[in-house]
Design a protein around this nucleic acid. Structure first.
Lengths: 187, 187
DNA sequence: CAATGCAATTGACTTTCGTCAAGAAATACT
DNA sequence: AGTATTTCTTGACGAAAGTCAATTGCATTG
């Protein structure tokens, strides 16, 4: 829990009482490689924090996996669309390695939002950060070629390249595994 | 200001005092067709609300305009990346028609965030909504073909098609004007 | 160490997209 | 109405991506 507390404190400074209340809503979960934390049709009713492990967020489109995101230790994650709108998801969250996470439920989160300014601040800043990540990613689809997106990934996210098989990276870049292989050859 | 107040009240209910404080930080601005509200190199230090008119958010990539977003009446807008990180922007915001907006400055917004739970709630929910829009858009780039993205636009955002020239829609879909023209022919 | 399974590459081929240039169509202007 | 400007379409071509199938490379394991 130390990492989580430290991470939250970088965002907002909670007093003893607030931290105690927050802690009461948090539970630890452990997963084995290949476990599904969320599946199509379910509601995502939590926000989580990666303690250890590696997770991916993907969807199926006509038999093909489309990887939306990868999550590493110290990342907050959720199917935030399903979480916010309280609607069933089309996505899957999979543990790519054994790992442990901290989870907080939406109902508890909403209770916190009613309680103190700091929890709203926390929720706001987490939302802002999630927004920024999506916005940067979208911009690169609008302005860059697949080759350029790959080159930027090399620079900005080398840890993804080390940890993840290439065919998933291709999907994450919005192209096929074969295309990525050819892009790499051209460089 | 009526529309703005009504719109905010759908998100969070402010008391008389809070509304008065908020109002003090809001100023009206009017633009003519073609005016630039924000240009590359500047800092975006505001969040705005469209009262009337039509605005677009775009960037230049090697002489070519890349349209990121369109904003219509009742939309909140900002170069939220520049706003949140307080860094210079690579983007432009242009009034595509004569229009008026309400603006609130970052410094004022940050003051509000210190003041009451409701302003944080407002900021949180606006951030959540902005996140949702980006996330949906990104998903469609990862999972759909240009043709599919166009067809979805027909269904989900017909107002964009009516109000915006096709070559900007092409850019918004991540393709060239010629490609969009051919996609339309194929249908 | 051979055998298996998964990942990555390569080849052949099709489809689609981008680019450049030319025209047609639509819109705005005088 | 006629002209000018902008927008949209079309054609020709090259580059890149998708698809399917086969092969190579790599790691795991029995």
């Amino acid at each position: 829990m130390k990492e989580l507390k430290k991470h939250i404190e970088k965002i907002v400074s909670l007093n003893e009482e607030e931290w105690k209340v927050l802690k009461n809503g948090i539970e630890k979960e452990s997963y084995s490689k290949g476990d599904l934390i969320l599946s199509e049709g379910e509601h995502c009713d939590f926000i989580a924090f990666v303690q250890t492990g590696l997770f991916r967020f993907y969807t199926m489109k006509e038999e093909n996996e489309k990887v939306i995101e990868f999550w590493f230790p110290l990342d907050f994650f959720s199917d935030y669309r399903s979480f916010l709108t309280n609607t069933p998801t089309n996505f899957y969250i999979e543990a790519m390695q054994p790992g442990t996470i901290w989870k907080i439920k939406r109902t508890y989160m909403n209770k916190l939002y009613e309680e103190s300014i700091n929890f709203n601040k926390l929720g706001r800043i987490v939302s802002e950060q999630l927004f920024l990540m999506k916005a940067l990613r979208l911009d690169s689809f609008l302005t860059d070629s697949p080759k350029e997106r790959y080159l930027q990934l090399l620079i900005k996210d080398p840890k993804i390249l080390q940890a993840v098989p290439q065919y998933m990276i291709a999907s994450y870049l919005g192209i096929t595994a074969e295309s990525l292989s050819r892009i790499r050859k051209r460089i």
